[in-house]
Amino acid sequence: MIRITRKVEFSAAHFYRNPKFSVEENKRVFGKCSNTHGHGHNYTLEVTIAGEPDPATGMVLDLKELKDILQREVVERMDHRHLNHEVPELAGKIPTCENVAAVIWNLLEPKIVRGKLDRVRLYESEDLFADCTAEENGLKR
């Protein structure tokens, strides 16, 4: 089995607020992230596809095809957007690194028809990232 990884970047705004919490509670739980004017990050997304290379092309999945999928499904949806207000898939969810990564996994999984989606790693900063992995691979990691 071979794994190939493609990286894309996008920039977006967000804030954390649970409408069930009081203003004070939101501030206590979410700190600076609770400022409802929002703040932004440069996100880096690494998407890994696992599979056997096609003997005719030598490719698990054409990286150009993967780039187009990432552009269409993620970058066009999220780049220079406000994740709380402009991304329907995140409606009703707090746009944490974990939740954004999970939404990206769910967007990409049905679109990968050659090879299998193996891992979605979303960096919110150099020192913070969320990983979504295929259930069957999860225990091996």
Partner: peptide
């Protein structure tokens, strides 16, 4: 799908 969060620290 399985999810994890990783934080990197330095010293």
């Amino acid at each position: 799908m399985r999810i994890s969060l990783t934080r990197r620290y330095h010293f």
